[in-house]
Design a protein around this nucleic acid. Structure first.
Length: 480
RNA sequence: GGCGAGGUAGCCAAGUGGUAAGGCCGGGCUCUGCAAAAGCUCUAUCGCGGGUUCGAUUCCCGCCCUCGCCUCCA
């Protein structure tokens, strides 16, 4: 598999450094509220990445952290009158639920920052010993950026001119630092932290944000691992700082590959609560859309391309045309897959691990190739539909149908798309009363009593059932 | 201001130095009492202006516009 690397700015081949398992780390969520669809663009594409890797035959080890201690978690937990743990556990569970709905595989390991404070303290001590960190008067510890010669390689800092405070978020502990670019490894306890502090050789306080990832990466992936990932916004300063911390400690290259995901735009702009375009999975669900539909939309653009999520239609109504369209596309895929399964007499659906063994992708090989080439999900989707145009399920031999079914199944598994269930006509279990009405309508139709037939059809529609006539009879479907 | 990513049909979005995948929407056709479903099918010269080239949407230059980052936002 090939993937763009932020550090070298090249598409590079991915190879596990230990020759066996591809080990990678993804910066996870800060659990202080519901994750929004922009967050999920990142997590979904990281998931597609992992799925593709594994389906291509490369075992993977996926670590994704939880940030459960920082300014926001502490602030909001206190505002909610809850302990930090209770507060972050709640939002962690909620995050897990959303991930499950979106069909994300669980990471192999999900370490939390709070559970690794000793590791972080040990790392700070090591950095101080090596002259990369210093304690300020208030008991905080800062990383001395000027002590690390490689600082800024990832974000090309040498080519940039930083505007101090351009983000409007200059911290108040500015004056404690030797240099504006130095960042906190340990933050001395303050009144607004409440009970959320830990003791350390430098006094009570809590770890800085960047440190948790360095400490957990080292603990679970070692001094050097294969790939590190996150949203583009993390390139600077988060990942830059992680590199400084980790490499100053270990003397090794932290990660061989940096995988960053471009942000989602909503109706052409950044998502924000004030703009009213801040959507969560729950909100979309309440509007009648499924997580699978959202997932389809999220993978419909290349991960290095901005993706514009259309929520409002031309009239400015919040109708989510993109999701509605995704629903149609998924239906199309589902029906096609179902037709192949029937033609191939495939009994049970195939699980992810079984699909890893599928070697022959048939007509769907080009789609998988798209994924292998820099995770080109839109190309893959395009190739899927193109392949579908060339296949008439009913004309295939059972063997061919089975092969194409497995090929399509592998692509769907790589994309993580769960197709809606296609009902067999015979299996629809409508209430007796509904069936009766439908039969009455069919009789009226046979009698060419169009008025009565249409009346009954309207009645059925009002009851939530749709009639589809075929040559021999009719089908009843629950109205979607 | 610095750095970065982009501008491809009504919308979303691939791709390519030789006249542009796919999805949604919309139109047409088949089927049909009508409709739905299904099947078939139609719909772009790639922001603007130069340049290089036999030929550019694809390379180069300039311009316009959008978006992102610039110290704890995926």
């Amino acid at each position: 598999m090939r993937l763009f690397d932020t550090m070298s700015r090249e598409v590079k081949d991915l190879k596990p450094s230990d020759g066996k398992t591809f080990r990678f780390y993804c910066c996870g969520p800060t659990v202080y509220g519901p994750a929004h669809i922009g967050n999920f663009r990142t997590f979904v594409l990281q998931d597609v990445f992992r799925r593709t890797l594994e389906l291509s035959g490369m075992p993977a080890f996926h670590v994704r952290n939880l940030t459960d201690v920082d300014d926001k978690t502490i602030r909001d937990a206190r505002a909610a009158g809850k302990t930090l743990k209770k507060f972050t556990d709640f939002w962690r569970d909620r995050f897990h639920e959303d991930c499950a709905l979106l069909n994300n595989l669980e990471p192999h390991l999900e370490p939390s920052a709070v559970e690794h404070i000793p590791h972080q303290i040990a790392m700070i001590e090591e950095l101080m010993e090596k002259g990369h960190a210093y304690r300020s008067d208030d008991g905080s510890v800062y990383y001395k950026v000027s002590s690390f010669k490689g600082y800024g390689r990832l974000s090309r800092l040498d080519q940039r001119e930083l505007r101090a405070g351009a983000s409007g978020a200059v911290s108040e502990d500015e004056y404690e630092k030797d240099s504006v670019s130095d960042f906190a490894l340990w933050k001395a306890r303050r009144a607004e932290d409440g009970e959320n502090y830990w003791s350390s050789p430098w006094g009570e306080g809590r770890p800085g944000w960047h440190l948790e990832c360095s400490a957990m990466c080292r603990e679970y992936l070692g001094d050097s691992f294969d790939l590190h990932s996150g949203g583009v916004d993390l390139v600077f300063p988060h990942h830059e700082n992680e590199i400084a911390q980790s490499e100053a400690c270990t003397g090794h290259t932290m990660a061989d590959h940096w995988f960053h995901l471009t942000h989602l735009l909503v109706d052409g702009g950044k998502m924000s609560k004030s703009a009213g375009n801040f959507y969560t999975l729950t909100e979309l669900s309440e509007a009648g859309f499924s997580a699978a539909e959202l997932r389809y939309v999220l993978i419909s653009a290349h991960y290095r391309q901005p993706l514009n999520f259309v929520a409002k239609d031309k009239e400015g109504e919040e109708t989510f045309p993109a999701l509605a369209g995704a629903g149609q596309a998924l239906q199309k895929l589902a029906k096609f897959s179902h037709a192949l399964a029937q033609q191939g007499q495939v009994e049970v659906s195939t699980g992810f691990d079984d699909l890893k063994k599928v070697a022959e992708l048939g007509s769907f090989a080009p789609a998988f190739d798209g994924l292998l080439d820099d995770l080109n999900t839109p190309e893959a989707l395009g190739q899927v539909f193109t392949a579908m145009k060339g296949i008439k399920p009913a004309e295939l031999s059972a063997e061919d149908a089975r092969r194409e079914f497995l090929g399509l199944s592998v692509i769907m598994a790589a994309l993580g798309l769960q197709l809606p269930v296609v009902e067999d006509e015979a299996e629809v279990d409508a209430p007796a009363k509904i069936v009766e009405m439908a039969q009455a309508r069919w009789q009226a139709k046979q009698d060419k009593d169009w008025g009565e037939a249409d009346r009954l059809r309207d009645e059925l529609a009002a009851a939530g059932w749709e009639i589809k006539d075929t040559k021999e009879g009719f089908e009843l479907c629950p109205k979607s």
